[in-house]
């Protein structure tokens, strides 16, 4: 008997698929699975509009949609509280660790992207707008 997946509430972005080509801010091309923390930091340093921020996972709750979770982050030095609802397989990049998701098995199954388990206390790479003056 075949088991079909429930419809996803959010379209899965294609760029997390293993082998996807990612262009860094300096023009260098890398595969998504080869990205390192330094790649994000250096790209953000070059960017005029974006700056990198640390977002610490504070809570992970069940979402309203099937296969969804609500992740509460504490963002930046001001520790602003931000919640995002994503599918369990949605990967985040954890500083010094790499790709992590709430359901790494599903991420690996769907994207062929090796993943660790995203846990409370993990510090994820995120972006904010630089102040425009």
């Amino acid at each position: 008997p075949s088991v079909s997946s429930p419809p996803s509430p959010v379209a899965l972005p294609p760029f997390f698929m293993r082998g996807s080509i990612i262009q860094l801010a300096d023009g260098e091309l890398k595969r998504v699975e080869d990205l390192k923390t330094e790649d994000f930091i250096q790209s953000a340093e070059i960017s005029n509009e974006l700056k990198i921020d640390s977002s610490t996972v504070e809570r992970i709750d069940t979402g309203q949609s099937p296969n969804a979770v609500v992740i509460q982050f504490s963002v930046g030095e001001l520790k602003a509280q931000v919640c995002v609802e994503v599918l369990v397989e949605y990967p985040f990049f954890v500083f010094g660790q790499g790709w992590s998701s709430c359901c790494p098995d599903r991420t690996t199954q769907l994207f062929e992207l090796s993943c660790a388990k995203l846990c409370v206390g993990d510090v994820c790479v995120s972006l904010t707008l630089r102040s425009l003056k």
Binding site: L35, S43, V75, S126
Partner: peptide
């Protein structure tokens, strides 16, 4: 005619969640 497909290239920032700016007034 079948044109060769170009490999899509994604910008680095598309991989990173964009969270609300935390600047104060």
């Amino acid at each position: 005619n079948v044109e060769p497909r170009s490999v899509p290239v994604f910008p680095w920032h598309s991989l990173v969640p964009f969270l609300a700016p935390t600047q104060s007034d």
